[in-house]
C-alpha cells in the first residue's frame, strides 16, 4: 500500500521533470551552442550555425586571445577584482566589526546611512562623480575605479559581515581583552578567523560583480590599454560581428573561469548572490 503510494507519487512528479527539463534546455542550450561555435571555422558557421561542429578546429582560441588582447585585459580585470576585494574585505570588515562588536556611537545612523548608500542608483551620482574623478586625475586609472567599486559594494559587504559577527560568542574577545589585546588584535586574531565563511561569501559575490561590471567600467576606463575583459569584449564583438567562431572562443575564455568557480562553490554562491542582489 505504502509502496504503491510512493510509486504513484513518483509517477505524479513526471510532468515536473518534463517541464523543468524544457526550461533547462532553454537556459543551457544557448551556452552549449556558444561552446559549439567556438570550435567552428567561419565557413562552417555559415552552413551550420547552431549544431555541434563537424570539423573541430582550435585556432579560434589563440586567435581570440591575440586579437582580443586577453593578456592585458585579464590583468586589468584581475587588478580591479583583487584591489576591490582587499578594500571591501579589510575596510568593510573593520566597519562590520565595529558595528557588531564595539560600542560604536551612532550605530543606528550608520545603518541608515549604509541603507541609503546601498539604494541610491548609480545614475544619480554618475555624472557629478565622473567630472569630479576627471579633475582628480582618476579617470582612466584603475585605482580610481577600484575606489568606486569599493564604495558601491561595501554596504552589502558590511551588512552581511555584521550579521555574521553579531552572532559570534563574545567570550573570546573578552578573554583576549583581559590579556591586554588591542581592538585591532581582537579583530585580526579572533573575529576575522571566526567569520571566514562570511568573508568568503562576500568575496565571491563582490568578485563576480566586479568581474562582470559594465556601466562603470565603460564610463571610467576609455583607453584601450585599460579595458577590462568585459569592456574589451564589447569592443571586440562590435568589430568582429561576422566572425562567430572568434567571438565565441573569446566568450568561452571569459566565462570558463567564472563557471568553474561558480560550480565548485555553488551553494555559497547562490546563498550570497540572492542576498547581495537584494541589497544592491
Amino acid at each position: 500500500m505504502l509502496r504503491r503510494l510512493r510509486l504513484r507519487r513518483r509517477l505524479s512528479l513526471f510532468p515536473n521533470y518534463l517541464i523543468l527539463s524544457v526550461l533547462v534546455f532553454f537556459s543551457l542550450g544557448p551556452i552549449v551552442i556558444l561552446g559549439f561555435n567556438s570550435l567552428k571555422s567561419q565557413a562552417e558557421v555559415g552552413r551550420n550555425p547552431l549544431g555541434p561542429p563537424q570539423n573541430v578546429i582550435w585556432e579560434n582560441y589563440p586567435n581570440a586571445w591575440e586579437i582580443g588582447n586577453f593578456a592585458t585585459t585579464l590583468r586589468n580585470s584581475s587588478i580591479l577584482v583583487v584591489g576591490t576585494l582587499s578594500g571591501v574585505l579589510v575596510l568593510g570588515g573593520m566597519a562590520a566589526f565595529s558595528m557588531a562588536r564595539l560600542k560604536l556611537p551612532g550605530e543606528g545612523i550608520m545603518t541608515l546611512y549604509l541603507l541609503i548608500g546601498a539604494s541610491l542608483p548609480i545614475q544619480l551620482f554618475l555624472v557629478p562623480l565622473f567630472f569630479l574623478w576627471r579633475n582628480l586625475g582618476l579617470v582612466n586609472n584603475l585605482f580610481g575605479l577600484i575606489l568606486i567599486y569599493i564604495a558601491v559594494n561595501s554596504p552589502f559587504a558590511i551588512f552581511l559581515l555584521r550579521s555574521y559577527m553579531i552572532n559570534l560568542p563574545s567570550d573570546f574577545d573578552d578573554a583576549a581583552r583581559i590579556d591586554g589585546a588591542s581592538e585591532w588584535q581582537v579583530f585580526t586574531k579572533i573575529v576575522v578567523p571566526l567569520s571566514w565563511p562570511a568573508f568568503l561569501t562576500v568575496g565571491l559575490v563582490v568578485g563576480l560583480a566586479v568581474w562582470n561590471e559594465f556601466l562603470l567600467a565603460t564610463v571610467f576606463l576609455t583607453e584601450h590599454r585599460l579595458f577590462t575583459v568585459v569592456t574589451s569584449y564589447y569592443n571586440f564583438t562590435s568589430r568582429f560581428t561576422r566572425d562567430w567562431g572568434l567571438t565565441s572562443a573569446g566568450a568561452v575564455m571569459m566565462v570558463l573561469p567564472v563557471l568553474i568557480l561558480f560550480l565548485s562553490l555553488q551553494r555559497r554562491f547562490i546563498a550570497g548572490i540572492t542576498r547581495g542582489g537584494l541589497v544592491n
Binding site: M94, S98, P105, I116, S154
Partner: peptide, 19 residues
C-alpha cells in the same frame, strides 16, 4: 570604534553621498 568605520565611511562619502 569610530576609527574602524572611518576609512570606508570616507570613501562612501566621496564616491556616493557627495556626488
Amino acid at each position: 570604534a569610530l576609527l574602524f568605520v572611518l576609512p570606508i565611511l570616507l570613501i562612501n562619502v566621496i564616491v556616493i553621498i557627495g556626488p
